[in-house]
Amino acid sequence: MLRRTRPLIIALALGGSLALPAAAGQTAARPETARDGAAQQTAALPDQLGSIDLKRPAIVSADVVTLGDLFTGLSAEQAGTPIARSPKLGESVPVDAAWLGLLAQHYKVAWQPRSHLDGTVVEHQAIVIGVPEVQDAVTKLLDDESNGEKLEVTVDNPSLSIALPLDSDGRFGLEGLRRDDRSGRFTVTLVYPETGQPTIRMPISGRAVQLVEVPVLLRRVADNEIISSGDVGWETRRADRLGSNLLTDPKDIIGLSPKRSLRAGEPVRAGDLRPPVLVERNSLVTMRLKAANMVLTAQGRALDDGGQGSVVRVVNLKSNTIVQATVAEAGVVDVGGTAQAALN
């Protein structure tokens, strides 16, 4: 994994280490004339071009770049010719067509760029310890100490990166973990290698936040619908972003209706729900009065919406009297004894 790129300043000066030497009796080409020289050489070597190709990208794993790192089709002796120091571990350096042409000319490589786009990038491969690896390691360490508490770990430095040679095992350790339970802030020291004398010690800081499972709606539910068990699922959320009055038991959600339309994936709060509407405003209802040995009924019109147990206003269609009634079931309301006259 390669993280950074530096611009090329002089001829294939990987890390500023190489300037093309002039052959005997020659003067080294200046950068501003390199492209012209490359074009002239292309015409001078028509029979040799084509068997050698440029590597894109040019991957190196050693501290020195060789001709074989840049070109294919070279003899073993020519391929092993060292030409520059490699970029730093995990870094890359772009190399343009003009300077590659000068390099090929100097080392008698039968290759020339066909255009100014015929460049490459020299990449020094490395094992990179980055943010994901560190966050996973801190999470595991905290999990071992948190008695099953689920945590989400975030380090403060989003560009954290440690490049190691490819022949290393890449294993690192963490020492001196400290965490504030109230804020979730933690500090720890990364050490490499994991065992033995450390060559790298890096302080790491960040935050570990508790994760909780909460019931959420699996689909959009309109304000006139009743939430069923199939409408509710579970999602993992950060505890610090949930707010108050969140319902954590599906039993407190199923069978109720939203006061407003609720989106899929949205946690539900107590204030979002109400009993299902069994009596709608302006709908016809049966007004019922229960006595000891009889039940009196009359027809009325609801003046309010109401769920089971809600008190709504109802107007008797015969007498035009308005009374308070309790919603008993869909389309049925009960009136009290003092409202008996309202049934007449």
Results as ranks from 00 to 15, higher is better:
Arg3Trp: 15
Arg4Asp: 07
Pro7Ala: 10
Leu8Cys: 11
Leu8Phe: 11
Ile9Val: 10
Leu12Thr: 13
Gly16His: 09
Ser17Glu: 05
Ser17Ala: 06
Ser17Val: 00
Leu18Lys: 04
Leu20Phe: 10
Ala23Arg: 10
Ala24Cys: 04
Gln26Val: 05
Thr27Phe: 13
Ala28Trp: 00
Pro31Ser: 00
Glu32Pro: 00
Thr33Pro: 00
Thr42Met: 05
Ala43Trp: 14
Ala43Gly: 08
Ile52Phe: 11
Asp53Arg: 07
Leu54Arg: 13
Ala58Met: 06
Val60Asn: 06
Ser61Asn: 08
Asp63Asn: 12
Ala76Met: 10
Ala76Glu: 12
Ala76Ile: 09
Glu77Ser: 11
Gln78Glu: 14
Ala79Arg: 03
Gly80Val: 00
Gly80Ser: 08
Ile83Val: 08
Arg85Ile: 02
Ser86Arg: 07
Ser86Tyr: 01
Lys88Arg: 05
Lys88Ile: 03
Lys88Asp: 15
Ala97Ser: 11
Gly101Asp: 14
Leu103Glu: 04
Leu103Gly: 07
Ala104Tyr: 03
Tyr107Asn: 01
Lys108Gly: 05
Val109Asn: 11
Ala110Cys: 04
Gln112Leu: 12
Pro113Gly: 02
Pro113Trp: 04
Leu117Ile: 02
Leu117Tyr: 09
Asp118Asn: 08
Gln125Ala: 13
Ile127Glu: 11
Val128Phe: 01
Val128Gln: 05
Asp136Val: 13
Val138Thr: 00
Lys140Leu: 12
Leu142Ile: 12
Asp143Arg: 14
Asp144Gln: 12
Ser146Trp: 11
Glu149Leu: 10
Glu149Asn: 14
Lys150Ile: 06
Lys150Leu: 15
Thr154Val: 05
Leu160Pro: 00
Asp167Tyr: 14
Asp167His: 11
Asp169Leu: 01
Phe172Gln: 05
Phe172Tyr: 09
Gly173Leu: 01
Gly176Ile: 09
Arg178Lys: 13
Glu194Ser: 07
Gly196Asp: 03
Gln197Met: 05
Gln197Gly: 00
Thr199Arg: 11
Ile200Met: 01
Ile204Thr: 03
Val209Gln: 08
Val209Ile: 08
Leu211Ile: 13
Glu213Phe: 03
Glu213His: 10
Val214Ala: 15
Pro215Cys: 07
Val216Glu: 10
Leu218His: 00
Leu218Asn: 11
Glu225Thr: 06
Ile226Asp: 03
Ser228Trp: 04
Ser229Tyr: 06
Val232Thr: 03
Glu235Val: 14
Glu235Thr: 15
Ala239Gln: 11
Asn245Ile: 00
Pro250Ser: 00
Lys251Glu: 12
Ile253Phe: 06
Gly255Ala: 02
Leu262Tyr: 03
Arg263Cys: 01
Val268Gln: 01
Val268Met: 01
Arg269His: 15
Gly271Phe: 14
Leu273Trp: 09
Val277Gly: 03
Glu280Ala: 12
Glu280Phe: 11
Met294Thr: 14
Ala298Pro: 15
Asp305His: 14
Gly307Met: 15
Gly309Thr: 08
Val311Glu: 15
Val311Phe: 15
Ser319Cys: 04
Asn320Glu: 07
Asn320Phe: 04
Ala330Gln: 13
Val333Arg: 12
Gly336Ile: 04
Gly337Ala: 03
Ala339Met: 04
Gln340Ser: 10
